[in-house]
Computed example of a mutant assay.
Amino acid sequence: MELRQLQYFVKVAKKEHVTQAAEELHVAQSAVSRQIHQLEQELGVDLFMQKGRNLHLTAVGQLFCSRVETILKDLDRAVNEVHEFIDPEQGEIRLGFPHSLGVHVIPSVVAEFRKLYPNVKFRFKQGMYPTLIRDVVSAEVDLAFISPFPENHNQVAGNVVLTEDLVAILPPGHPLANEQSIKLNQLKDDKFILFSKGYSLRPIVWHACLEAGFTPKIAFEGEETDTIRGLVAAGMGVSLLPEVALFQSFTLQPARVRISTPKVTRTIGLIHRADDKLPLVAQSFRIFLLEYFGLQPDTPPS
């Protein structure tokens, strides 16, 4: 059994098509088919079954694929560890984060880190809360910023690195747009623009409104801070966003007003797999981040 066979097998399993797999692998279709055939002969089982134009994994193929993916990930990590042993400043950091941090926080911390380690590469992956947890647990990423911080999760560990206020954003012509601060219940008659279900900011805003004594009336739902900010600026409703999501300057800007009651905040955490040793370069980045946010670096995870 050869490494190439396993790599081709996983690619075909993901694409469900030999031709598409061959195109991504930059090899001939016949080469992929031959390697898959040899692998099936060696194992003595059919790994795929034909369904229309696509190939689907058989039951034993699914079992084999899950094991092979783990093996290939471990192999990739082993190769990276060798490279880092030779030169830890030449490694790659796989970092996950929510969309709202992509405007200012991620570019800022990465730029500062690369001043110290200019040859380190980054692979970024954006996602919602459950996706980021899954990516950390499955070793798709080494580290992830996440909000809110998961206080009780036995498969991830980490630190709260930042607690930030959410502010009200209002159309420029809103009667409260020029106030220094407001109580959240002053917006009880307004239509709200919220994140779609599954985004961590949605329940934060929803529960803050309930705490203020009203249920928000939803006018629109969105999946990006830019969309929500733009809709508010266009007069379609009001919303609450973290200040970090309001750094960019656009022609159409909403007014931002602080909320005095109740205090609405979110925690941002930096997480990694529990009971798992980080690659050297990722551990260096983790220590840098803790110091960047004013925290004392603790004992590295082992």
Rank of each mutant, 00 (worst) to 15 (best):
A255M: 07
A208F: 02
I268S: 11
T227V: 13
A233D: 12
R266Y: 03
T265A: 06
S200A: 10
A234T: 11
A212N: 00
D226L: 10
I268W: 09
A233C: 13
S249M: 13
I204E: 03
R258D: 12
E223D: 06
A245V: 13
T251F: 14
P242A: 06
E243V: 14
S239Q: 04
R273G: 12
G237E: 07
A234N: 12
P203E: 02
S249E: 14
R256G: 05
S200M: 02
R229L: 08
P242Q: 04
S239L: 05
A274W: 09
L240A: 13
P203L: 04
E221V: 03
R229N: 08
F247Y: 14
V238C: 14
E211T: 04
E223V: 08
T225M: 09
P216V: 00
G230N: 15
W206D: 00
L252A: 15
D276P: 01
T251K: 13
T215E: 03
L231D: 07
R202D: 02
I268P: 06
E223A: 09
L270D: 07
A274L: 09
F247W: 11
K263Y: 01
L210R: 01
P262E: 09
V238H: 12
R202L: 03
A255S: 15
L201V: 05
M236L: 15
R273A: 15
F220H: 08
D276S: 11
I271R: 08
T265P: 06
T265F: 05
T251M: 10
V264G: 12
D226S: 13
L231T: 09
M236I: 05
E224S: 14
D275G: 12
L210E: 02
G213N: 00
A245F: 13
I268M: 07
R202W: 00
L240R: 04
H207R: 06
S249N: 13
T215V: 02
Q248I: 15
V232F: 06
T261W: 04
R229T: 11
L270Q: 10
E221F: 03
E211D: 02
G213A: 00
D276H: 14
E223R: 07
P242S: 07
V257D: 08
T227F: 14
T251L: 13
K263G: 04
T267N: 13
T265K: 08
R266N: 12
S200C: 04
D276L: 11
R266G: 07
V244C: 09
R266I: 15
P203Q: 03
R266C: 05
A234I: 07
E224C: 02
S260G: 04
F214D: 01
A234Q: 15
A208N: 02
A255Q: 07
A208D: 00
C209D: 00
H272A: 07
P242N: 04
K217C: 02
V244G: 06
R256D: 07
H207Y: 05
